[in-house]
Design a binder for these strands. Structure first.
Lengths: 201, 201
DNA sequence: ATAATTACATACGCAGCGTATGTCAATTGA
DNA sequence: TCAATTGACATACGCTGCGTATGTAATTAT
């Protein structure tokens, strides 16, 4: 039989490299992942890596882009499940916290990503998951459900709080219990932004 | 004259290494700082480094400990300048944001530190600057000025928000303007935690 | 059919790290 | 006071891992 078209082979090669790198970065961290090792694991060499991604860093960018797309899709799925916009927003944030509990996301997106690529805000494709939060907040403000003067700024703060919450949870002795505390405190924090804020929780 | 006592010489050596490493880590980042280079800059060799700190990572820990102590002292100084406890707390948070604007703090404490040592919450000496925020919040709650069920959890969220805010500011095109937005949004966020929350800012 | 480009693999050199070892001064003990 | 020992470094060595330069076979263009 005739071989697959070339473009498809290339896409496969790139996908293999991204997958192998993602696994290695997630398992041992970016710095400890040997290019020779994980390219060999994918049946390739460093030559392919440099050709397609320019280097280790370029490959990390590709991995991050992939993970970010998955996260964004998951977040959108969460908020879509709630008819009440406010509740949708809150659960979206909670979903963000919970995703960041996954070791791969933590290691790659929260630790190595910022350290290697500089901080996330000037990544080529500014993380979709932050944009997602911003958009949700903007909608709430437009609907008069949130009393916030600057939705974008607030969204950034909120995403920062979520991120920190998940780091905290993931490294506590009792993640279950800590998760409950963090989510509760987080909901309280958001409640303060709501129109007509009924302060006692 | 007789030489200085040995213990003093040792302290000097350690201090020289920490200072040289701090400068190098802050300037080019942990990964790009060559041990040979910056030890030579301090008039020493890698031998001294391994002897005193066990390795590059141990030296990073020492640098972080030093910076964290400075940050904590500065934060305490800030909150002490305000007689109103609530205002003191707010300004302490703002101070945290502003400190994180300094490239050295950003690079070492916020980017490389977490990536190399794992996330901050299980660092040997859990960052004093976070503890400082927690204590301030606890006092506010005790005074009935803040309506928060779990001060520690809330302090972590707040510090996460501050941290993110400073990353945002530092990388914006117009740090001045962004800083104003971030601080404003941040104050609004905190306002929501206040007892009797008057929501409109 | 031949030229040019693409998609990799191979080969090479070098920087940076960790360890093993050496050395000299300072302290300790009799 | 004078070994003996410990501590504080420097030196030497080998190895890993990265980036680049080069090679080569397959595809595409002319």
């Amino acid at each position: 039989m005739a071989h697959k078209p070339r473009s498809e082979m290339i896409a496969e090669t790139r996908a293999k490299l991204v997958a192998a790198a993602r696994e290695a970065f997630g398992r041992v961290g970016y710095a400890n992942a040997s290019m020779d090792d994980f390219t060999a694991g994918a049946g390739l060499t460093r030559g392919a890596l440099y050709h397609h991604f320019g280097g280790k860093q370029g490959l990390l960018e590709a991995v991050i882009t992939q993970i970010d797309a998955e996260m964004t899709a998951r977040l959108n799925g969460v908020s879509a499940r709630f008819s009440d916009p406010w509740q949708g927003f809150v659960e979206e944030c909670v979903g963000y916290i919970e995703m960041a509990l996954e070791p791969e996301i933590q290691r790659i997106m929260l630790l190595d990503g910022p350290a290697v690529l500089g901080n996330p805000f000037n990544w080529p494709n500014q993380p979709g998951c932050i944009r997602s939060l911003t958009n949700s907040l903007k909608r709430l403000v437009a609907d008069g459900q949130a009393d916030v003067a600057d939705p974008e700024a607030t969204a950034r703060l909120v995403s920062g709080a979520s991120l920190h919450a998940s780091l905290w949870i993931a490294n506590s002795d009792d993640p279950e219990a800590t998760s409950k505390r963090a989510v509760a405190a987080f909901k309280r924090l958001l409640e303060g932004l709501r129109t007509g804020a009924p302060s006692s929780g």
